[in-house]
Simulated assay, not measured.
Amino acid sequence: MNLIIKQLVDELHEDGVYLPNGDVRIGSFGDSEALSNALILLIATGMKRATCSLLWSWEFEGGVLPKAGDIEIVLDWHSRPTLVRRAVTVEIVPFARVSAEFAASEGEGDLSLSYWQTEHWRFFSEECLRIGRVVDESMPLVCETFDVLHRLK
């Protein structure tokens, strides 16, 4: 466990928040403060029970892919802990094969697959530009469902 994660876990422990066994990581949501706040609110209210990310971004960053059982301390836009969540399922799915059920579990917009595709295409287009890849319908996504263990705010 790296030093920053250990410090956060220790701070949570001091506040009476105990994390279950599992690999702990730090994460955040959204590419703007407004989107970050909106997504964290959706998670806190139980509307958002899933998330996805671009496999190519994990490879570009040299990150370790999440796996079922992983614990994530979710930071807000200002790097303050807001939630603790645990991955329930993790699978790699091409963009074009994301299901309507998964899209709805992300809890965004009108919960439709069409809305999900439009918004995520925008997001992943920007991400592909950042990492030097070309966005396409076969791009691999890390699709994760989760449970919220603690709401910290």
Rank of each mutant, 00 (worst) to 15 (best):
residue 81 P to V: 07
residue 12 L to Q: 07
residue 69 G to H: 06
residue 137 E to M: 08
residue 126 E to M: 12
residue 29 F to Y: 15
residue 96 A to M: 11
residue 21 N to S: 14
residue 144 E to D: 04
residue 143 C to M: 09
residue 64 V to Y: 01
residue 92 I to V: 15
residue 109 G to N: 11
residue 35 L to A: 10
residue 96 A to K: 14
residue 38 A to P: 00
residue 37 N to D: 04
residue 67 K to R: 13
residue 25 R to Q: 07
residue 61 E to Q: 13
residue 94 P to Y: 03
residue 120 H to P: 06
residue 75 L to I: 09
residue 69 G to K: 09
residue 140 P to D: 15
residue 36 S to G: 13
residue 146 F to Q: 02
residue 28 S to C: 08
residue 36 S to R: 00
residue 5 I to V: 15
residue 2 N to P: 05
residue 32 S to A: 12
residue 85 R to E: 06
residue 124 F to M: 10
residue 53 S to E: 03
residue 41 L to V: 13
residue 51 T to L: 12
residue 85 R to T: 11
residue 113 L to P: 05
residue 121 W to G: 06
residue 116 W to G: 09
residue 134 V to L: 13
residue 100 A to L: 07
residue 121 W to M: 12
residue 71 I to S: 03
residue 19 L to V: 10
residue 14 E to S: 14
residue 97 R to N: 14
residue 56 W to T: 04
residue 27 G to C: 09
residue 147 D to M: 07
residue 82 T to E: 11
residue 104 A to L: 05
residue 137 E to H: 07
residue 62 G to T: 11
residue 15 D to Y: 03
residue 100 A to Y: 04
residue 6 K to D: 14
residue 74 V to T: 14
residue 136 D to P: 03
residue 100 A to W: 04
residue 146 F to W: 09
residue 111 L to R: 15
residue 53 S to V: 07
residue 85 R to N: 02
residue 118 T to G: 02
residue 113 L to Q: 07
residue 17 V to I: 15
residue 18 Y to H: 14
residue 102 F to R: 02
residue 82 T to F: 00
residue 64 V to A: 10
residue 78 H to G: 01
residue 26 I to W: 01
residue 51 T to N: 09
residue 8 L to V: 06
residue 27 G to A: 13
residue 92 I to E: 14
residue 125 S to P: 01
residue 146 F to L: 06
residue 5 I to Q: 11
residue 124 F to A: 09
residue 148 V to P: 02
residue 77 W to E: 00
residue 145 T to M: 05
residue 70 D to G: 04
residue 139 M to A: 13
residue 52 C to F: 02
residue 151 R to G: 03
residue 110 D to V: 09
residue 23 D to K: 14
residue 1 M to F: 08
residue 87 A to Y: 03
residue 34 A to P: 00
residue 73 I to D: 01
residue 25 R to M: 11
residue 122 R to T: 10
residue 137 E to A: 10
residue 150 H to D: 04
residue 47 M to R: 14
residue 144 E to P: 05
residue 59 E to W: 03
residue 106 E to Y: 03
residue 47 M to N: 10
residue 88 V to Y: 01
residue 138 S to C: 07
residue 69 G to F: 05
residue 5 I to T: 15
residue 30 G to T: 05
residue 12 L to R: 04
residue 46 G to L: 11
residue 53 S to L: 05
residue 89 T to V: 05
residue 101 E to L: 11
residue 58 W to R: 06
residue 34 A to R: 08
residue 126 E to A: 12
residue 13 H to W: 06
residue 53 S to H: 00
residue 74 V to M: 13
residue 95 F to R: 02
residue 151 R to K: 15
residue 119 E to G: 12
residue 57 S to E: 11
residue 97 R to T: 05
residue 37 N to T: 01
residue 89 T to K: 12
residue 138 S to A: 14
residue 79 S to N: 12
residue 84 V to W: 00
residue 126 E to I: 09
residue 3 L to G: 08
residue 12 L to E: 06
residue 81 P to Y: 02
residue 99 S to D: 05
residue 136 D to S: 15
residue 136 D to E: 14
residue 7 Q to W: 05
residue 48 K to M: 09
residue 78 H to P: 00
residue 14 E to G: 08
residue 84 V to D: 01
residue 10 D to V: 03
residue 20 P to E: 13
residue 23 D to Y: 08
residue 81 P to R: 01
residue 22 G to W: 03
residue 79 S to Q: 11
residue 38 A to G: 02
residue 1 M to E: 12
residue 83 L to Q: 05
residue 49 R to E: 08
residue 152 L to Y: 06
residue 32 S to M: 06
residue 99 S to M: 10
residue 115 Y to V: 06
